[in-house]
Computed example of a mutant assay.
Amino acid sequence: MEHSAPDLFRQQFNEHYPSVRRKLIALIRDEAAAEDLAQETFLRLYRTPPDQPEAIGGWLHRVLTRLAYDYMDKKSRERALTQKQEQSMMAQPQAAPSNEEQVIDKGEQEQVREWLDSLPERDKQMLLLRYEGYSYAEIAEQLQIRQPQVGMMLRRAGERLKRHALKAEGAMSSE
């Protein structure tokens, strides 16, 4: 009797989940994150199983290792960004900005928002995600595009934003 795909998946899950979870905990040293990554590993198995079912152990190991390294890279970038922000805060004088500076900052933010709103929605989303610190892989996942396309698309979106800004400044200076 042949097993259905969900039965095979359940069997593979029950057999391999403990070792996948254990390896992830050993790699990233965070049990809650390891649970999440183990689930992501098996979600990928469910969506795109390996061509050779007998190689599932190696396939799972490769996937969990990639996910763990991506997770550690992301955490490393977050720590570096936090440290950079902390150093920046320590280096800056703690004087509160004047009302004039606040008005100018708000005006600049509104201007940038207008320029962003004039872009196509995907360009706008892409630039905002990158500004928020998302990686190319995360942007690709969010916008459902292939990762190799992200760099080129970001560059083009940035160029369009720059053209809008230059055009707007040119129109303001000619008034």
Rank of each mutant, 00 (worst) to 15 (best):
M1S: 05
M1P: 01
E2G: 05
H3E: 12
S4W: 03
S4D: 06
S4T: 15
F9I: 05
Q11V: 02
E15A: 07
H16F: 10
P18N: 09
K23Q: 10
K23G: 02
I25F: 05
A26Y: 05
L27Q: 12
E31W: 06
A32K: 04
A34W: 11
E35R: 06
D36R: 06
D36Q: 11
L37I: 10
A38P: 04
E40W: 05
T41Y: 07
T41I: 09
F42W: 04
L43F: 08
L43Q: 07
R44G: 13
P49A: 06
P50F: 00
Q52S: 08
E54W: 03
E54R: 07
A55P: 03
I56S: 01
G57E: 08
W59E: 03
L60C: 02
L60R: 01
R62K: 13
R62V: 12
V63W: 02
V63M: 09
T65Q: 10
T65A: 03
T65V: 11
L67G: 12
A68R: 00
Y69V: 11
Y69M: 13
D70K: 12
Y71G: 09
Y71I: 13
Y71E: 13
K75V: 15
K75W: 09
S76T: 13
S76L: 14
R77V: 07
R77L: 14
R79C: 06
R79I: 08
R79F: 08
A80I: 15
L81S: 06
T82G: 03
Q83K: 04
K84E: 14
Q85Y: 02
S88M: 11
M89W: 04
A91E: 09
A91H: 02
A91M: 07
Q92S: 08
P93D: 09
P93F: 10
P93R: 10
Q94A: 10
A95R: 06
S98C: 04
V103K: 12
I104P: 00
K106N: 07
K106Y: 13
R113H: 06
W115R: 11
P120L: 14
R122C: 04
M126C: 01
R130K: 08
R130G: 01
R130T: 07
Y131G: 09
E132V: 06
E132H: 14
G133A: 04
Y134V: 05
E138M: 06
L143Q: 02
L143E: 02
Q144A: 13
I145Q: 04
P148S: 14
L154T: 03
A157Y: 00
A157E: 01
E159H: 10
L161R: 05
K162G: 02
K162T: 11
R163A: 12
L166E: 14
L166H: 09
A168E: 05
A171C: 05
A171K: 14
S173A: 14
S173P: 00
S173M: 11
S174I: 15
